[in-house]
Design a protein around this nucleic acid. Structure first.
Lengths: 218, 218
DNA sequence: TTGACAAAAAACGTATACAGTTATAATATC
DNA sequence: GATATTATAACTGTATACGTTTTTTGTCAA
């Protein structure tokens, strides 16, 4: 949070986006836990901003599913029920399959190389706290060449909404290698321009992630 | 808008939601046209609300893709580019197919009947301005039994974002009958619990809608 | 007349202060 | 000990003010 606070002075435009980014990151880092209220006065004071951009940021986070509003009780970090988890992963499968189908035929070699370098970083990275970011960086690199920004954005929102619960899980190291093997397999399918193979790998990848998450949350 | 204004006094909770509903409806009705700025002072005065809930509502509408913020120029009604249209319809196809697949096995007869009665209303309804609402009402009734509220919500947002441009088109009457025939076919597929048939009809239905929209916007 | 430029107005973004409402917690009463 | 009351904290919304940016207007010169 320190680097975020100091970056506050550097934030040129849009205060509410700066606040949303800061709070989103804080939620990912577990600084705010599920059902914990996000006190407006406290946050406004800490970030040295006023109520208007702060409340705008909270509405933005609500639309991303990260917080919810309790009437007259303010915003709290939202949790995930088992049905919601199932729903999110089902949506992710069809949306990411769509992204794959539209990306593979047109992906430039440059992006394949970029994705591969991300995987190599993950292989050499011992700090598992960076895992979530790098994980998404890899998938995003592959999806972006679909030239479907709204789709990629929707996938990212759904991804964010579940991955924040997996951060702690990654620390246990267990299963990380399996997940990373999926990544290499997925990259190979992209290289071979094999859409159905890539989709098959992705579905397995997501099913594994879902199983982990359900196990972790129970 | 009159009934909305008068309902302002009745709105118990959440002022920003009331504002968002009012503005969303106004955009659908064409009271605000594409690229038209939504003047904060004017709207606040008209709805007798202050800046905070108004700006919250605008952020909400931004997250629905209905408005966008120009830096230091405020919010304007967003338009749709051809690539965006293509993207939205591709997303709708996979998401609505998912809803169909999860709804058909469990849909209760009651909801089939409800959907059918909506179609009968459409058949007897000459006021085409009601078409968009009834159209969505029909689809929503079918999708809701999937018990996937986040999915249905996402579909609705995407649907809203394109259907607002078709309202005017419906007035021409042209093609309405074809669209309505699709609805009856879709209902029949639900009755027969034929998932792939329903999905096939839906894809044709959406492709037709996309073609209409592209033609209309050029 | 037309174009450029400067002044003025409008609108946005943010901050502060304040009033009303609701929920939680502490206290008092039975 | 249980219930009613009060107090406090926090949210929700309003009103107002101020600086900044954008747009408009009006003037002046070519």
């Amino acid at each position: 949070m320190n680097e975020k606070s100091s970056s506050r002075s550097r934030h040129t435009g849009n205060t509410s986006e700066f606040i949303a980014d800061t709070l989103r990151e804080a939620i990912f880092q577990g600084e705010y836990k599920v059902n914990q209220p996000l006190r407006q006065d406290q946050i406004a004071k800490k970030l040295k901003v006023s109520k208007i951009p702060l409340r705008e940021a909270l509405v933005q986070l609500k639309s991303e599913g990260l917080v919810e509003f309790m009437p007259n009780r303010g915003a709290v970090v939202s949790g995930l029920s088992l049905p919601e988890i199932k729903e999110i992963f089902l949506m992710r499968i069809v949306l990411e399959n769509l992204a794959i189908a539209n990306a593979i035929p047109v992906i430039p070699v440059r992006d394949i190389i970029r994705a591969q370098s991300v995987l190599e970083i993950i292989d050499n990275e011992n700090d598992k706290s960076q895992w979530t970011d790098l994980n998404w960086e890899f998938h995003k690199t592959l999806y972006q060449s679909s030239a479907m920004p709204l789709l990629v954005n929707t996938i990212q929102t759904l991804h964010n909404n579940v991955s924040r619960f997996l951060v702690i899980y990654y620390d246990t190291l267990e299963g990380s290698d399996v997940s990373q093997k999926d990544h290499w397999d997925l990259l190979a399918a992209f290289k071979a321009k094999d859409i159905s193979k890539a989709q098959e790998i992705l579905e397995r990848h997501l099913s594994t992630a879902e199983r982990k998450l359900r196990k972790f949350l129970s």
